[in-house]
Amino acid sequence: MADREVTLSIFRFDPEKDKEGRFVDYKVPTVEGGMVVLDAVRYVQEKIDTTLAIRWNCKAARCGSCSAEINNRPALMCKTRIDTLGDRITVAPMRAFPVIRDLVTDVDENYRIMSKIPKFTVRKELMNPEAEGKKHQDVWRIQQINVERAKEFKKCIECFLCQDVCHVVREHKSGYFGPPRHIVKAASLDMHPLDIVNRAKFLNEEGGLGYCNITKCCQEVCPEHIHITDNAIIPEKERAVDLQYDPLMHAIKRRLMKKRGETVA
């Protein structure tokens, strides 16, 4: 890739001074191959306008701080190469969240919602396995398939891009929890072999799981390639069906859950 110049159109907004945000154009010269959008934005911050506010940390798609909307598509700034984009690049903050300043958004709400999800509740027997006549190391052993299933969700870096792209959250303000650390988190707890709480009914009634209409945008933007819809939302929906819409499965499930000592949150 030969050196070239790109124009970055960056969203600037300072709530103390401005009433409304605006896009300001900056020219970034000598773009090298392999350069990512974050490099260009940092160039602007260092050489052109030091007051530009961005949040970034690792530049390796691990910390999930530099989420933004690049050419209106939610993406990590550090994972979007400039040579995949045109000569004019718009960089905006995630507009599903309140803007603190420029490209920095306030994602606190997500953590508040997360604290509503029923906590990890360990099986009682596991705390004192000797009383059940089992060895401690046997009881705490987890099968590989369970590890695989939960590991996918643990890859989440909390960049909240899926939350930003979710049209229910973005356009309709319906009280839907949204996919990222909420349904994925709940699913990872639900599928944990040592946990005894079933969160599907809670998600369906309070989390607004029904608002999701499986349009899979969250899965498309996920920088960690978690199959959010296929492996978290649909199984949770199916669990909710088990408990609320399917009398046959409900009967079977109730017996199974009683046997395993599980509870519904």
């Binding site: 300072d14 103390e16 001074k17 911050q45 030091t50 007051t51 530009l52 506010a53 961005i54 949040r55 603190i100 300043r101 420029d102 920095v104």
Partner: peptide
């Protein structure tokens, strides 16, 4: 010295 305010001023 750096311009700007106290809020999220990376400079």
């Amino acid at each position: 010295s750096v311009p700007g305010g106290r809020k999220y001023n990376h400079g």
